[in-house]
Nucleic acid binder design. Structure first.
Lengths: 336, 336
DNA sequence: TTGAAAGCGATACCAA
DNA sequence: TTGGTATCGCTTTCAA
């Protein structure tokens, strides 16, 4: 592997000149530039990025820490991060922390030891103070998190309140007044926001809040089945069920069918996330879309924009919109 | 950020001693080791991995190049790679090449410039010669590829022939003699192997090979629908359809249902891959499992085993087994 | 505009 | 066992 020194030698110029050519500095005689370029070509020279990073103290890489790439929500988001990063000349190191704070910390330390430019961290479990401290050394973007105003961390969230409200409104518009809700695991900000939005919507609409209409789900297919069974065997069952994710909505849908109910004829089901599976099941699932790819893109955008040449700029917070994707699993309420 | 020099200073020992302590060399006086460790702790010192890599000319990272993490086949494989790599103290850089040779080459070059330890490359599009050349500089594992014996590249493949044969046998055992086949895009080794296996199976069983029973699919949901329509409207339609991936099998299944056919009552459908969706659809899809996670693990295993301290050892090839996962979409043939 | 030289922060060798 | 020093390959400053 040839080095810049080799190039300099063969081209009959100094190391600095080669560096200047390679970095597009214009203080180089055209003739020298040409010579250097020719040698670079001939030797198939490629800069050693490690040396560059050592010298400049920052690589052109960003770390992406997510719970688990196996969760169908994340590949698209990861792709958004990668595409946006690539476009800006950065590459992405993917890390799955399995929602384990220890793993999360360990990855962060490793990313720092690698002198990464920045980190995109989903569902952070570390404390705010820890996050702030990291943001001193590298660009930082949090997703699905809440930080105090003035924080050095950038934050990208999704309008979960709005998503639920839109879904509920959709159901209302189709005449539903008795709407059940399947909660998710109470471990994340977004999950919390979704139930809250459900409650508030009911209140705003002057609809009664029935405790038995809220079922504690676990984000799993089976959790959705259980919820459906519980909700639909009530003496006065809901005519529509809103789930806080697609997987449970699917379970719900399947269980309703198993009970001999027609979806959406007898009961409407509405999901959340808009995963691929929402398109693959029968009936296709009406659901709330989260802009997964765009979340990734936006994250990188903030990352790069607010850390142009080291720290300084305060963080920014972006809230991305949700929307209902109308398909087949929800329709008009029908008297039973 | 403190450096090893700072540690050496505060601990009153030399740089070399600190290095030896940190790298677990035993030629250090226990008392000195303790001193160093104490200072490391106090200063929260962490080795700069970039400097280490520059000096040693190889990082503890491996690159993983896949077509697209958005394709539901890959997340699990990627997870296998990451887990196995982590266990060995390595981290993984994920790259999506979108099946574009140019992107593939560009990523490889970038990985080399970063002095990565090795590369796991899926469905390589570069030439064999190119692959061999890369293997001179870093550990290399190819997946879904064929290399000549004696190659420096390691290869991990899946027993696609066997998978198809097992699926066909399963159908035969249930009395099917008229079996349709939906091909995939002819762009990969595995795709090619699957049709071939289908043909040979028919021959071995003494069953007629009917051209009209082989439909050219495109791996998409819609491709599966079209295939079903074509195959099932034949004057003498097949009683079972084997698809070369799950997505087309799902499309096939849905189209059959739309045509008023019962699956598996009227027609059996069998997929390939065993993606999550195979479990989520109705009826649940009987399919051929590919050991995705294990492929990733095996890849890293070969990578590490055959490149312990630089090149030298020849590559190894591993073929992982497939198996039929019996669910609900395939059953006994029935006279129509 | 260019060249010479000083670092970046580790590892590794050699002498002591 | 330890300390001193050269070195990895680049960027960056400073004089010329």
């Amino acid at each position: 592997m040839p080095t810049m020194k080799d190039v300099a030698l063969k081209a009959g110029v100094s190391l600095g000149t080669v560096s200047n050519v390679l970095n597009g500095k214009d203080s180089v005689l055209p003739e020298n530039r040409a010579k250097v370029l020719r040698v670079v070509e001939r030797l198939k020279f490629r800069s050693n990025l490690v040396a560059r990073t050592l010298r400049t103290k920052s690589s052109k890489d960003i770390g992406l820490i997510i719970p688990n790439i196996n969760n169908p929500f994340y590949p698209e988001l990861a792709r958004g991060v990668e595409d946006a990063a690539n476009k800006a000349g950065f590459t992405v190191l993917l890390c799955n922390d399995d929602r384990d704070v220890r793993k999360e910390r360990s990855y962060i330390k490793s990313l720092m030891a690698k002198k990464m430019y920045g980190i995109v961290l989903l569902k952070p479990q570390i404390s705010r103070a820890e996050a702030e401290e990291i943001a001193l050394n590298m660009a930082m973007v949090l997703m699905d998190a809440r930080m105090p105003a003035g924080s050095a961390c950038n934050v990208v969230n999704v309008d979960d309140r709005g998503g639920i409200v839109k879904g509920m409104r959709f159901l209302r518009r189709h005449g539903h007044a008795k709407i059940g809700f399947i909660k998710g695991l109470a471990d994340s900000l977004s999950s919390h926001d979704r139930v809250k939005a459900y409650r508030e919507f009911l209140k705003d609409e002057g609809l009664p809040l029935r405790r038995e209409y809220i079922f504690p789900g676990d984000y799993s297919l089976n959790g959705g089945c259980k919820a459906a069974r519980a909700l639909l065997t009530l003496s006065d069952p809901p005519t529509a069920i809103a789930s806080s994710n697609d997987l449970m909505a699917l379970g719900c849908l399947k269980e309703a069918q198993r009970m001999g109910l027609d979806v959406p004829g007898d009961v409407s089901v509405i999901g959340y996330d808009n995963l691929d599976l929402a398109n693959f099941c029968t009936p296709r699932l009406t659901t709330i879309n989260q802009p997964k790819y765009e979340m990734g893109v936006k994250g990188v955008e903030l990352l790069l924009r607010n850390f142009p040449h080291g720290p300084g700029l305060p963080g920014e917070v972006a809230v991305l919109p949700t929307e209902v994707v109308e398909r087949e699993s929800a329709g008009p309420a029908r008297a039973r």
